[in-house]
Structure formats: structure tokens, C-alpha cells
Design a protein around this nucleic acid. Structure first.
Length: 388
DNA sequence: GTTGAGCGTT
């Protein structure tokens, strides 16, 4: 028998992979790797919980955890490293000839997408997985709209390599569809914005199928502190969208000098911790966490989040925070992954200058170092240096 | 249906 396997980023391109020994047998990792370079395992959606489930990997063979392979399931490749083919395939070449996506008929559309993917020798591709284009869902399409209408709307933002309206068995539009851009900039430009097609507003989002339901919402959310009143949600959206697709911006009403910004990709978040200048104002970005820990998993409004508590998450924040520049010797001494004790030991040296002052900024190391006011800690340190 | 919240892949 064969199972159906696809790369998550190229779901249209399904490859049948043989199973040795029937439905209860095993899949050879090397056979799989012949089709998917760099693959290390497979996963699939548990239909009951809609959570990803991994297959067992033993001695170069993949075994189904439920004992039997399902020929109808689409198994998805898992890579231990960035896909090497992503890096070496696609070279900048002559301008790719204008590929016209057929306006009607998703069969032809998919075929074209497939060809585009497999012949992707001239196309440039993003090697950074965080900047990879994915199919985007377009909600609210008029039942009368055709692929051509959708395509025309979004081509204004860049070249599309995929455009499809979902239809029922009778060919009747289901009112939504999927698009995929060639360039990530185009994806950033359209995502979570309102567009108009045939007199209806449509919304473009990352589809649920691309969202990791196991990942806490706070992993995609930042806490923006010291936010001036005159900075609007649009300002934040504009500023932070250059780092990644934004899912949501939340500023409490009335303004309380902070905001939450939620991204689609959690990988963006950890790159942002620190100070940012927005509209001439210095703001501080740190991690967020849910007010109620039990609601960590799932999709919750930012109003149910707060600035992360002093814990090891904040500690990581502090280190990735510019401490390496503020405290150049820190990394020399301790490297990249300090624990609490190491942090304590390091900052101990600065206690000397506040000796005698029990209220000095570092007199209570534990509280001062990762009290959440990371930038203030850095400022204190600079003060300290001034007195030395 | 003259419809209008959602979430796809042979």
C-alpha cells in the first residue's frame, strides 16, 4: 500500500510513498527522504483532537502509532533542520514569464501550482522559514466572484502563485478561497487587512490549518510598555509589521501606557524583546502571559493577557535584551544561556557601588534583575557605571 | 435561494 505525504508548505504536492509490509508495516525514512530532502519524521492531524500527532521513528523506519496506516490521511513531513532544498532551489534568474492563473476551475489552478512548484528553477524562494509564503485563506468572497476577480484584487500586492475559490460538488462557490504569493512582502501587505472584491469586503488570514493549536497564544504576543498616548493601533501595526505578519493589536481603553501586539508566527516574538523607537518614542517590548494560566492554550483576546511575571521567560528576555552590549563581559563569562544563579553572580559585582544603601537598585538582586522593568535595570546599571 | 460564518487539500 501507499500513504499520501506532503510538505506543509506545499500541500498541493502530494507524493505517494510505499509502506513496507502493508497497512501495519513501516515506511522507510530513506525512501521518504528521496522525495523530501532533509525529512526526519512524519506527523498527522489527530482527527479527534485536531492536534498534530507524530509517527514513531525507529532505526530509519517510521511506524504508525495507531498500528495501521490510513491511505486517506495526508501525512506531513517534519524536518529537523531548515529544508536544504529551500535554500538551494530557486535561483534569481530572468524575470519569470508572466504566469497567468486560470480564472475558473480549481483543477487547472492546482495543476499550474504544481508545475510552478516543481519547475521552480527560476523562482527565487525565501530560505528563511519565518518568511515563507503560505496559502492564505480569503473569507467573504462573493458567491458570484471568480478566481479572476480574486486574482485581480491581490495581484496589486505582488505575483500570485496560487489562487483558488472553494466550490461544492455542483461548482457553487463556498464563499472562500486560498491564495499564495510569491514574495513574503506581498503576504505581509495583504494579511489581516480588509479588501474589496465585487462590492464585498473580504478578509485575508493565515488559515487555521497552518496554526499550531498546541502553542500558547502568548508565544505569539508581545507586551509593549511605556507606550505614549498618541501612538495608535495603526502606528503599532505599521511599525511591527516589518518584522512579521500581525494578527492583532490591542491597546486598552482608556489608554494605560501599554499594548499587546500578536503575531502569526511565534518565532518573530523573541527577536523583538528590547527597546524600539516608534514615532520618536522609546517603548519597551517584553513577553506577555495570560492572566489566567489555565487559558494558556487557544485563541484568547489580548485583554486576558498581562506582562509576563518575573520568571525564567523574563530572564531570557533580559539576556536577549541588549545585555550583551550593556554588559559586554556578561556573555564572555557565561555564554548565551544563563540561569538564575549565573545572573545573580554576574550582577553581584555591581552591588559594591551601592554598598550601604539597602535600597540600591541591586541590593535585592533577585527582584531587581528580572523584575520586569528590564530597561530600567539597564538604566540603573548605567547609573552605576557613572558612579564607579 | 435571492445565502454570509467559517477553514482546504485525490
Amino acid at each position: 500500500m501507499f500513504i499520501r505525504v506532503a510538505d506543509e508548505a506545499k500541500f498541493n504536492e502530494i507524493v505517494e510513498i510505499p509502506v513496507d509490509g502493508g497497512a501495519e508495516g513501516s515506511v522507510s525514512l530513506s525512501t521518504l527522504a528521496a522525495q523530501f530532502q532533509g525529512v526526519s519524521a512524519l506527523k498527522y492531524r489527530n482527527s479527534e483532537t485536531s492536534v498534530w500527532r507524530g509517527v514513531r521513528v525507529v532505526d530509519g523506519k517510521l511506524y504508525h502509532p495507531d498500528g495501521t496506516w490510513d491511505p486517506n490521511t495526508v501525512y506531513v513531513t517534519v524536518y529537523s533542520k531548515p529544508v536544504s532544498s529551500d535554500i538551494k532551489r530557486k535561483v534569481v534568474g530572468e524575470q519569470q514569464d508572466e504566469t497567468i492563473i486560470p480564472s475558473i476551475g480549481h483543477n487547472t489552478t492546482q495543476q499550474l501550482d504544481y508545475e510552478q512548484e516543481t519547475n521552480n528553477i527560476h523562482n527565487e524562494v525565501e530560505s528563511d522559514p519565518n518568511r515563507r509564503c503560505v496559502d492564505l485563506i480569503v473569507l467573504g468572497i462573493s458567491y458570484r466572484s471568480l478566481e479572476a476577480d480574486v486574482k485581480k484584487c491581490f495581484e496589486a500586492f505582488g505575483e500570485l502563485i496560487f489562487c483558488e475559490i472553494k466550490r461544492d460538488a455542483n461548482g457553487q462557490s463556498r464563499g472562500f478561497g486560498f491564495i499564495r504569493f510569491k514574495n513574503y512582502e506581498s503576504q505581509l501587505a495583504v494579511i489581516n487587512k480588509r479588501h474589496f472584491i465585487d462590492g464585498r469586503h473580504v478578509d485575508v488570514k493565515i488559515p487555521d490549518s497552518k496554526t499550531n493549536l498546541q502553542e500558547p497564544e502568548c508565544a505569539r504576543k508581545i507586551f509593549v510598555a511605556r507606550l505614549p498616548d498618541n501612538i495608535t493601533p495603526d502606528d503599532l501595526r505599521q511599525y511591527f509589521s516589518k518584522y512579521g505578519a500581525i494578527k492583532d493589536v490591542y491597546i486598552p481603553k482608556p489608554a494605560r501606557s501599554f499594548a499587546f501586539v500578536t503575531f502569526h508566527d511565534s518565532n518573530v516574538v523573541r527577536t523583538l524583546f528590547g527597546t524600539h523607537i516608534i514615532n520618536g518614542s522609546s517603548v519597551t517590548v517584553g513577553p506577555a502571559e495570560p492572566k489566567n494560566k489555565t487559558s494558556a492554550i487557544g485563541d484568547y483576546p489580548s485583554s486576558t493577557f498581562k506582562r509576563a511575571k518575573p520568571d525564567h521567560t523574563s530572564l531570557r528576555t533580559l539576556t536577549s535584551y541588549g545585555i550583551s552590549s550593556t554588559h559586554p563581559s556578561y556573555h564572555q563569562q557565561y555564554g548565551q544561556s544563563p540561569n538564575t544563579d549565573m545572573m545573580h553572580a554576574y550582577f553581584q559585582q555591581y552591588r559594591a557601588s551601592t554598598a550601604g544603601s539597602s535600597k540600591g537598585p541591586f541590593s535585592n538582586a533577585q527582584q531587581s534583575y528580572w523584575s520586569g522593568a528590564h530597561d530600567e535595570a539597564a538604566a540603573m546599571w548605567q547609573q552605576q557605571q557613572h558612579y564607579r
